[in-house]
Each structure stands twice: as structure tokens, then as C-alpha cells.
Write a protein that binds this DNA or RNA. Structure first.
Lengths: 106, 106
DNA sequence: TGCGAATATGTCAGAACTGACATATGTTGC
DNA sequence: GCAACATATGTCAGTTCTGACATATTCGCA
């Protein structure tokens, strides 16, 4: 399984720009991490923009505060699938997702 | 679980534009299906563009022909996560994903 | 400093996903 | 018509993901 390795990668944190050098990620893996982080940022932006706490958003998503925290951190244990569903449930549109993926970091 | 219901939705096929009326999907659910189909189309485009069979792509992805078929069909049993990983492994960039999400159907 | 609220991190049972296989349904060239 | 190849669909055991809970850490702010 591909993801088994991913779990060990420990790209933890937001220093992905440097991560490529630090760890040995293939281009595809790199981009995958970037996708996750882009979506994670979008989700946090959506939540804070609406002045919701993680707890409040979690309730609306039918999830838990801890998972929301992990989503926003781009934690290796959350899937892009959940990130997308959460962002959409938080009010994002497909277009918003596209923009999040094309916008440069910061 | 949210996805349990999704599984029964049977949005099968490509007639999603009509699907909204036919089934009763919330906006978020609608968009989620559209995201999957957009990525599914991207993946097929990547594969056919390179003149690969599903079998050949499956080997490169470390997966099976049947799963590739399901990926390209936007089957309810495949996750956005796998769609994204596959597209990236098939050579797409984050930008390609963004474009796939913003481009209109057809 | 000390407190309350918010966010982060670790763990795990149960739910969802995945690769693989079997098999069915196209599609193409003869 | 029918091989040969490509794609689609059904199933399932093993893996991964998820919500929930416990707990820790961070962040104002008085």
C-alpha cells in the first residue's frame, strides 16, 4: 500500500517548501502533500472567516474537534477525500477548491 | 457515516447535470460528485493522452485494471484521495487538478 | 500569574476504501 | 461470426481512515 509509507514520512508542519530537500519525496508525493496543505489552508480560512471554532465546525460536519484540528494541520491521517468534503460542507464551491489549488503559498 | 448514504445514491453514469433534480442531493453533495467526476475525466484524459491501457496505468499505479476503471467512472467506491494520487502519479500537476476543477463539463 | 476557551496530539474500535480476482460487456479487425 | 483485447461490474479480505474520547498545549486576558 502506498499510504503506508506516506504515514511514516513525517512531513509534519508547514515547512513543505523545504521538505523536498529534507525528505526524499517524488514529485507526485510532493504535489500530493501540497494539495493537502492547500486544502487545509482553505478549510481554516473558511472556518475563521465565519468566526467558527473548531468545535462548532465539527458539529456541522458531524465530526469532532480533534479531527478538524487534524484536517487544518494537513495531518497525514486525514484524506484528501475528507478535506474536500469538509471544505464543501463548510461552504466552499468547486471553484474555491480550484483556486486553493492554484494559489501560491501564503 | 456520511459516505454510507452516498453509496446508495447511485448517481452512476455521466448525467450529473440532471442528477440534481433526479436525486435529492444537497449542494455540497452535488459539488462533491462533480469534483469526483471532474477528476475522473482528468485521469482518463491523462491515460488516453499517453495511449496507455487501463491495465498499463494500473501497473504503474500499483493498482488493478478494475480499480482504474472505477476511478475513471467516478464510482462511489473510489475516494477523491485515490483520484488525486492517481492523477498525480499519472503525471498531472497541482495546476492540472485546479484546471480540471474549474473547467466546465465536456 | 492563573483561568477559561481554543487548538493540538495520541489512541483505538468500527466504518470505509483498496487491490485483486472473477466475470461480463464492449470494441476492432478479420 | 469470432478471436483478441480493452473496459466495466461484482465481490471480498486486508488495510486505511474516521469519529470519539482523553489529554496536552497554546492563547488571550484580567
Amino acid at each position: 500500500m502506498r499510504a503506508a509509507k506516506r504515514k511514516k514520512l513525517e512531513y509534519a508542519g508547514w515547512r513543505v517548501a523545504d521538505a523536498k530537500e529534507f525528505l526524499k519525496l517524488s514529485d507526485a508525493e510532493m504535489q500530493f502533500v501540497e494539495v493537502k496543505l492547500a486544502l487545509a489552508r482553505l478549510l481554516r480560512k473558511l472556518r475563521t472567516g465565519r468566526k467558527l471554532t473548531q468545535m462548532e465546525l465539527a458539529e456541522r460536519l458531524g465530526s469532532s474537534q480533534s479531527r478538524v484540528a487534524k484536517l487544518e494541520a494537513g495531518d497525514p491521517t486525514v484524506s484528501v477525500d475528507l478535506l474536500v468534503r469538509s471544505a464543501l460542507a463548510a461552504g466552499a464551491t468547486k471553484k474555491d477548491l480550484a483556486e486553493a489549488l492554484s494559489s501560491k503559498r501564503r
